[in-house]
């Protein structure tokens, strides 16, 4: 009976309403093939990536950068590349940085630490002298940021290895938000922690964001008003930043962002073509039924 019903449906209807598993299979094939055959393509160059890069280039050496590492396993494909490229740039410029993590997303601490240790080892940087990762902080909203901004040592107390912040050589010079030249938040949602409301607007510390593609479109009003000074949006943002640091000679390794966008291009093309085919099939099906009615 199913076969008879299928016969009655026209070709265009069958195309429009095909079994989704066919789509899954074709899509999987596209992704797998282009993963194996990495095609070198020109990396996009968004404006806000360039602005962040120039901002980091102009940062003073006597202040630190505060990185809010809040990405999870779900957005590793986008945020890990952003985080890695950013810290490589900071290391190359000998700018010290502190990494803040949250208990609401403990994966960020673990994943961030893995990347940090790997990059630090490769670039010869020392934990405690060139960078510090704090213990996780409970996210109680703006009040947490207020306390953190006023007194980092008193609020955070220890670093991830259990050492008192006062004993860490680097932290002797960085006690409050006044010693921070840039805050960089890398997370699924750049606005999840209210840095703008409680730190950027109160102390004037510049804020930049590296976020998943979903949330990046909500950042543009803040970029326009100057509350955000730079944005790395998704894997494309990571790839663009990686390209800049490769061009600057900081590293020769192709990052995960670049590898991802190459495959993403073709997968996106597949989806666009399939949507267009579906719409074309819809129009043809309508035309056919109109002709049949006539």
């Amino acid at each position: 009976m199913m076969a008879e019903e299928n016969k009655k449906r026209s070709l265009w209807d069958r195309i429009q309403f095909c079994d989704p598993r066919i789509l899954y299979a074709l899509f999987a094939v596209v992704v797998i093939v282009f993963e194996m055959v990495q095609v070198k393509m020109p990396v996009p160059n968004p404006v806000w990536v360039g602005k962040l890069y120039e901002k980091v280039e102009s940062l003073p050496l006597d202040k630190a950068v505060l990185i809010d590492c809040d990405y999870g396993a779900g957005n590793r494909g986008e945020c890990e590349g952003q985080f890695k490229a950013f810290i490589q740039h900071l290391f190359a410029r000998n700018i010290k940085f502190m990494v803040v993590t949250w208990t609401t997303n403990v994966e960020g601490q673990k994943l961030g630490r893995q990347v940090l240790d790997e990059v630090a080892k490769k670039m010869g940087k020392v934990d405690g002298e060139d960078y510090v990762m704090f213990q996780a902080i409970v996210n109680a909203g703006g009040v947490t940021l207020q306390s953190l901004a006023k007194d980092i040592h008193g609020f955070v107390v220890k670093d991830i290895n259990g050492r008192d912040l006062g004993e860490i050589p680097m932290m002797k010079n960085f006690k409050s938000i006044n010693d921070v030249s840039l805050i960089y938040r890398v997370a699924y949602s750049w606005g999840g922690i209210p840095w703008i409301g409680f730190v950027q607007s109160v102390y004037g510390t510049p804020l930049a964001a590296g976020s998943a593609g979903i949330e990046s479109s909500t950042a543009y009003p803040y970029l326009d008003s100057g509350q955000l000074c730079g944005l790395l949006a998704g894997a494309a943002g990571a790839a663009a930043y990686e390209k800049r640091i490769i061009d600057a000679g900081i590293t020769e390794e192709t990052g995960i962002g670049t590898k991802t966008v190459s495959v993403q291009s073709f997968a996106t093309l597949f989806v666009v073509v399939s949507i267009l085919i579906s719409n074309f099939a819809m129009f043809m099906s309508k035309a056919q039924s109109r002709r049949a009615n006539v």
């Binding site: 993963e35 590898k259 991802t260």
Partner: peptide, 16 residues
């Protein structure tokens, strides 16, 4: 568009 690309990045990372 951004949502789709975001999910796609996660899938590509897993496939990688």
């Amino acid at each position: 568009g951004n949502t789709f690309m975001s999910r796609l990045s996660a899938l590509i990372e897993r496939v990688h």
